[in-house]
Write a protein that binds this DNA or RNA. Structure first.
Lengths: 193, 193
DNA sequence: AGAATTTTTGACAAATCGTTCTAGAATGCG
DNA sequence: CGCATTCTAGAACGATTTGTCAAAAATTCT
């Protein structure tokens, strides 16, 4: 019947994610995108729709990855302290490994688009909540195990670590001092008692 | 000799700050700016130069205000705990009072421009450091007063609270749940012992 | 009043933006 | 083969972008 699609939609989406993640939505032009995706301009429009739709699809894919990642990490059996340390430290390591750190696409989206785009804000909010839920579950389990004190509030702790993570993801864009970033993690982990 | 300038440069700068703060750099067009500033297009170019120069001047002014604010707050004689609580809570109150929270222009600039604009990144980094220094000094004083334990590291604590603050300034853009934000503050303050 | 200078205004050029269109090459199935 | 469909390449579109130019209006000082 017809010529089949020659490109893998998910792979193209990953490429789009990559570019939007680095440059943000506004600063990325459709020409940038077409060039970076390596397929024809028309194919982009045919496959996704307009520019915003490409961005949304890319962000949605990113969100799924992050939730899946958090889920896998927090459901492991290592001690919470170790898990959280890895969660935060990995962010630092990754950022210091890039020549100019792009942080987290979710956080970037929150800052750039949350005030202007209702749909994006909702997507971001829901994703952050989903990750928070996973962490809350993990903290509750840790409390039952006796890893953290009975007086602690898992929900509050999860929110706290979410905020620390968000802060780190901003700060890695401004400093490359490992110690400064690790200090944040070390102090934050003290709250676990 | 000549007709004097009819507008107050600083007042105009404050207006520019206001708009860039809300919409970011890329999403603000020169026409938006001209309209919002209330003066002629040509006057803007004459006074500041190009669009980026207006942004930089506005951001610089914002930075000075934030450093001055932090200095005043941290040099007060109230207990550190109270001061930090006010510092963080005020952020929450302000955000919840706005119909769509714009967070902090510094943080917004860090996220939107740190990777692309060297000069902006430097300005942001230096400002964050300056605020951090003020807090460090305050924490050291608190340590001498016995307000916080001898084993604490004022530098690390200051970095930690800087990160918590940055995180909060992102999260206020995604949620309007006061409790969720206050949980962050409450847990963070526990690190003071 | 008149000289000096700034503000305003509107038009303007040039580039870039997102998007659509066209034409043709490529590919699979009957 | 030939029909159907998709991909590519590039031109083209209108809107919007940043920034400039020139001339008129306004204002202050001599």
């Amino acid at each position: 019947m017809a010529r089949p699609k020659e490109f893998d939609t998910q792979a193209v989406l990953d490429q789009a994610m990559d570019l939007f993640w680095s440059k943000g939505f506004e600063a990325t032009s459709m020409s940038d995108l077409v060039e970076h995706l390596g397929l024809a301009r028309q194919s982009v429009y045919d496959t996704f729709g307009d520019k915003r739709a490409v961005y949304t699809a890319a962000l949605r894919s990113y969100c799924q990855q992050r939730v899946a990642n958090a889920r896998a990490l927090f459901r492991s059996d290592s001690p919470v302290r170790a898990v959280l340390h890895e969660y935060l430290s990995h962010t630092i390591d990754k950022a210091l490994g890039e020549e100019d750190p792009r942080g987290c696409m979710l956080i970037n989206a929150a800052v750039e688009l949350a005030s202007a785009d209702e749909a994006t804000r909702e997507l971001v909010t829901n994703t952050l909540k989903a990750i928070g839920r996973e962490l809350t579950i993990r903290l509750r389990r840790a409390q039952e195990n006796g890893e953290i004190g009975k007086h602690q509030d898992p929900v509050a702790l999860a929110r706290f670590f979410g905020s620390v993570m968000a802060g780190l993801l901003v700060l890695v864009k401004t400093t490359r001092e490992r110690r400064a970033l690790e200090d944040v993690v070390d102090v934050a982990l003290k709250t676990l008692g």
